[in-house]
Computed example of a mutant assay.
Amino acid sequence: MRLIHLCYLPLIAALAACSSTEAPRSEQAGAPSNDGRCNAQGVQNLLGEHASSALVESARSKAGAEQVRVLAPGDAVTMDYNSQRLNIDIDEAEVVERITCG
């Protein structure tokens, strides 16, 4: 019975060598991802800015998102989650109030 357990040691060692505790590069310091997944951390500095088309496109690019939607008060929105979409919530004066992914 002890021999059976020893046979598993190389497999366990190989699996342990493959694991990593470090976060992927795309999740570190708000760096944009290359796979289209949104990361809103790096664009939070845009809060309080006027939501011009240039700002919206720049935010989409910096967040690494494939899609962006600007949400004004009273807009009807779907509640589906999309990891590739950046959401920019604005107020009546088109000032950015919140930036999230989904």
Rank of each mutant, 00 (worst) to 15 (best):
E57A: 11
N39G: 02
S58C: 01
S20R: 14
V56S: 00
Y8I: 10
E27P: 02
L55H: 03
S61T: 15
P32S: 10
V68E: 04
N34T: 11
N45M: 07
T21R: 08
D75E: 03
L15W: 10
A51G: 04
R60L: 07
S61C: 04
D35W: 12
Y8Q: 04
R37N: 10
A17D: 04
A16R: 03
G42M: 08
D35Q: 13
K62A: 14
P73H: 01
D75Y: 04
R69V: 14
S33L: 07
E49P: 00
N34D: 13
E57F: 06
N39L: 06
P32Q: 10
L9I: 13
P73W: 01
R25H: 10
V70W: 11
A14F: 09
V56L: 08
R60A: 01
A51P: 13
D35A: 09
G30C: 01
S53P: 05
V68K: 09
G30F: 06
L46E: 14
P73I: 05
E57H: 07
E27S: 12
A54L: 08
L11W: 07
A54K: 09
E27H: 12
G30I: 02
A17S: 12
S52W: 07
L46F: 15
D75S: 06
Q67Y: 15
P24T: 12
A59F: 07
Q41K: 12
E49V: 09
Y8P: 05
G48D: 05
D35R: 14
P24S: 13
S19F: 05
A23V: 05
E66Q: 15
V56M: 06
S52T: 15
G48E: 01
L9S: 02
L9A: 06
L9G: 03
G36A: 00
Q44S: 06
R37V: 08
R25A: 15
A14R: 08
A23R: 14
A40M: 02
H50M: 07
N39M: 02
Q28V: 15
S52I: 02
Q44L: 15
V43S: 02
Q67T: 05
Q41S: 11
I12K: 01
A59Y: 12
V43R: 02
A59K: 11
C18N: 11
E57D: 13
N34C: 00
S20Y: 07
S52F: 03
A51M: 10
Q41I: 03
